[in-house]
Computed example of a mutant assay.
Amino acid sequence: MDAGRHADGDAPRRIRMRVAGLVIAAVLLVLAAIASLAIGNRAIDPVTVLTALAAYDDSNPLHLMVQQLRLPRTLLGIVVGAALAVCGALIQAFTRNPLADPGILGVNAGASFTVTFAVAVLGLNTPGAYVPFALLGAFVLTLLVYALGSLGTSGATPMKLTLAGVALGAAFTGFTTAIVLQNRSTFDVMRFWGVGSIGGRSLDQLTWAAPLIVVGLLIGLLCARSLNALALGDDLAHSLGVRVGVVRILVIVSVTLLAGTSVAAAGPIAFVGIMIPHVVRWFTGPDQRWVLAYSILVGPTFLLLADVLGRIALPNGELRVGIITGLLGAPVLVALVRRKKVSGL
Score class of each variant (00 low, 15 high):
194 G>M: 09
93 A>S: 14
54 A>I: 06
123 G>R: 15
88 G>F: 14
14 R>V: 04
330 A>E: 04
182 Q>G: 13
158 P>A: 02
327 L>Y: 01
5 R>F: 15
112 S>Q: 12
64 L>C: 06
17 M>F: 03
201 R>H: 12
316 N>L: 08
332 V>I: 15
123 G>V: 04
172 F>D: 02
211 P>A: 06
260 G>R: 00
136 L>N: 04
206 L>S: 07
259 A>V: 11
157 T>G: 15
102 P>M: 13
301 T>K: 13
1 M>I: 03
24 I>M: 15
255 V>Y: 01
224 A>K: 07
225 R>C: 05
302 F>P: 00
137 G>L: 10
307 D>G: 12
340 K>R: 11
243 R>K: 07
192 F>W: 12
156 A>I: 08
102 P>H: 11
307 D>P: 14
72 P>H: 08
327 L>S: 01
188 D>L: 09
331 P>E: 03
72 P>S: 07
288 Q>H: 07
128 G>Y: 13
183 N>F: 10
307 D>I: 06
324 I>P: 08
186 T>L: 05
154 S>W: 08
334 V>A: 12
113 F>C: 15
321 V>P: 03
243 R>V: 02
172 F>P: 15
163 L>N: 09
297 L>N: 00
118 A>I: 11
8 D>H: 09
204 D>H: 09
186 T>A: 05
92 Q>Y: 01
201 R>Q: 09
33 A>K: 04
71 L>D: 05
228 N>Q: 02
124 L>S: 13
54 A>D: 10
298 V>D: 03
149 G>H: 05
156 A>Y: 11
254 S>C: 09
335 A>S: 08
97 N>V: 02
302 F>L: 04
309 L>A: 10
249 I>S: 09
103 G>F: 13
11 A>K: 07
322 G>D: 14
266 A>E: 06
73 R>V: 07
280 V>R: 00
245 G>P: 10
28 L>I: 06
120 A>E: 05
204 D>K: 06
142 T>A: 05
90 L>N: 06
301 T>N: 07
180 V>W: 13
167 A>M: 12
33 A>D: 07
149 G>K: 11
272 V>L: 07
105 L>F: 06
169 G>F: 09
7 A>N: 02
9 G>A: 14
90 L>W: 08
94 F>V: 04
340 K>G: 14
87 C>I: 03
233 G>C: 04
252 I>R: 02
128 G>C: 08
74 T>E: 12
326 G>N: 05
108 N>L: 02
161 L>V: 10
63 H>T: 15
92 Q>S: 02
66 V>L: 08
183 N>Y: 10
220 G>L: 01
294 Y>F: 15
113 F>T: 11
331 P>N: 03
29 L>M: 15
249 I>A: 07
171 A>S: 15
194 G>F: 04
